[in-house]
C-alpha cells in the first residue's frame, strides 16, 4: 500500500495546501476545529485528538452564508450576483462519524428533489480524506448508530493509521487525483492495519423508530426535558443538525440576504406568521428534536439523524444527551393498544 511517514505530515499537508485549501484538525485555545492548514499554525495541528470540538459541517454548510447582495436606487433594484463558493477544498482526517454526518446532509440537501445549489457547489468541490478510528473515546457510540469506525464510507481517500505511518488508500477519482499530486511523497510499503478498539459506549436503537410512533404523547418527554434549557449547543455542535434560517442584513438602500444556522430549540424557530407557535413549550421543542433524529429522519431517509460522534455528551450544560435519551426511551413501556 502507498504510505507516508507520520513525521512527514507537514510536507504532505504543504503539498496539498499548495493548490487547494486543506482543512485539518487544529487546536484553537480550549477548543478544536477543522481549519485551513498553514505552516504558520503548524503547532496547532491536532492529529492526535480524537474528534474536533466543532464538527466539519461548516465547510459544506457555513454557519453564516451570504446568498446575494442588493441595492436600491429610487425605483431601481439591483441584485448583484451570488456568493456560492465553488472552489476546491480538501478535508483531511475526517473520521467515520463525521463522514456519516455528511451522508445525512447529502440526503437533505441533494437527494430528495430539490438540490441546494450552494451546498452542492461546496460538496462537489470537497475531497474527503478519511482516517481510521483506532481508539474511539469514552463518549463515542458510532457503531451503535450503524457506523463502522474503520469503514471507508464517504471517503475519497482513506488513511490507514499505524504507529509510524499513514497508509494511503485512494477510493474514488478525486482520491486518485490527489494521489498523483503526492506521488513522489508516497512510498510503497507493507502495512499491517491494526484493529479498532471499538466503542465502549453502546445504545440499543433496534425497533426505536417504530416504537416512537406511539410515543408522541408520552409523559417521558416532560421528564426528559425537565432540565433542558432550550439553548442551541447540541444543535450547533451536532454534525447532522442542519436547520437554517434566511435573513436580511439591511443597511438602508443596500444590503444582503444570508443563510444562517438556526436551532429547533429556539422559540423563534417555531414561530409562525401571525404569532402562533406550534411548539410553545420546551417539552415540545425537545421532543421534536429527538423525534426528528430518531424517528422522522429514519422514516424519510432510512438512517438516523445521529452519527454517534459523542459531541453532545460533553457539551450539554445539564448533561442531557442522545445516549441518555435513547436509553430512557428504550425503558418506557408503550401500551400496544
Amino acid at each position: 500500500m502507498k504510505s507516508f511517514a507520520k513525521s512527514a505530515i507537514t510536507v504532505v499537508l504543504d503539498r496539498l495546501a499548495e493548490q487547494t485549501r486543506t482543512y485539518v484538525p487544529m487546536r484553537d485555545g480550549v477548543t478544536s476545529n477543522f481549519s485551513p492548514w498553514s505552516e504558520r499554525r503548524a503547532s496547532d495541528l491536532a492529529l492526535n485528538s480524537l474528534n474536533t470540538t466543532f464538527s466539519p459541517k461548516g465547510i459544506v454548510f457555513p454557519q453564516t452564508e451570504r446568498l446575494y447582495d442588493f441595492a436600491v436606487d429610487g425605483q431601481r433594484a439591483d441584485i448583484s450576483g451570488t456568493h456560492a463558493e465553488t472552489g476546491e477544498n480538501i478535508l483531511f482526517g475526517a473520521r467515520a462519524c463525521d463522514r456519516k454526518a455528511f451522508a445525512a446532509l447529502d440526503q437533505v440537501f441533494l437527494r430528495r428533489g430539490y438540490v441546494d445549489t450552494n451546498y452542492k457547489a461546496r460538496r462537489d468541490g470537497l475531497t474527503v480524506i478519511g482516517r481510521d478510528c483506532l481508539q474511539p473515546g469514552p463518549f463515542c457510540f458510532c457503531d451503535s448508530m450503524g457506523v463502522d469506525p474503520m469503514g471507508a464510507d464517504g471517503a475519497d481517500v482513506l488513511l490507514h493509521e499505524t504507529t509510524e505511518e499513514f497508509g494511503w488508500e485512494p477510493l474514488t477519482e478525486k482520491g486518485q487525483a490527489l494521489t498523483l499530486r503526492l506521488n513522489d511523497l508516497l512510498t510503497e510499503k507493507e502495512l499491517i492495519r491494526p484493529e479498532s478498539a471499538g466503542c465502549r459506549l453502546e445504545v440499543n436503537v433496534a425497533g426505536l423508530p417504530e416504537k416512537l410512533r406511539g410515543m408522541f404523547d408520552s409523559p417521558v418527554w416532560d421528564e426528559l426535558s425537565t432540565f433542558c434549557m432550550n439553548c442551541g449547543v447540541c444543535t450547533y455542535i451536532c454534525p447532522v443538525c442542519h436547520c437554517f434560517d434566511i435573513q436580511v442584513m439591511n443597511n438602508g438602500s443596500s444590503g444582503c440576504r444570508f443563510r444562517c444556522w438556526d436551532s429547533c430549540m429556539y422559540p423563534e424557530y417555531n414561530l409562525m406568521a401571525g404569532g402562533h407557535n406550534p411548539r410553545e413549550g420546551k417539552r415540545d421543542r425537545f421532543r421534536n428534536r429527538f423525534l426528528h433524529k430518531l424517528e422522522f429522519f429514519q422514516e424519510r431517509y432510512g438512517s438516523f439523524g445521529c452519527s454517534g460522534c459523542g459531541r453532545c455528551l460533553v457539551t450539554c450544560p445539564h448533561s442531557l444527551n442522545m445516549v441518555l435519551v435513547i436509553n430512557r426511551l428504550g425503558e418506557v413501556k408503550v401500551d400496544a393498544s
Binding site: R27, D28, G29, V30, T31, S32, A46, S49, L50, N51, T52, T53, G137, P138, F139, G310, R311, L313, V314, T315, P317, S319
Partner: peptide, 16 residues
C-alpha cells in the same frame, strides 16, 4: 466541573 473533566477525557477539546 464534570463537563470540563469529560471534555479532557473525550479528546474533543484542545486544552482542558
Amino acid at each position: 466541573d464534570q463537563a470540563a473533566c469529560d471534555r479532557a477525557a473525550s479528546g474533543l477539546f484542545g486544552e482542558t
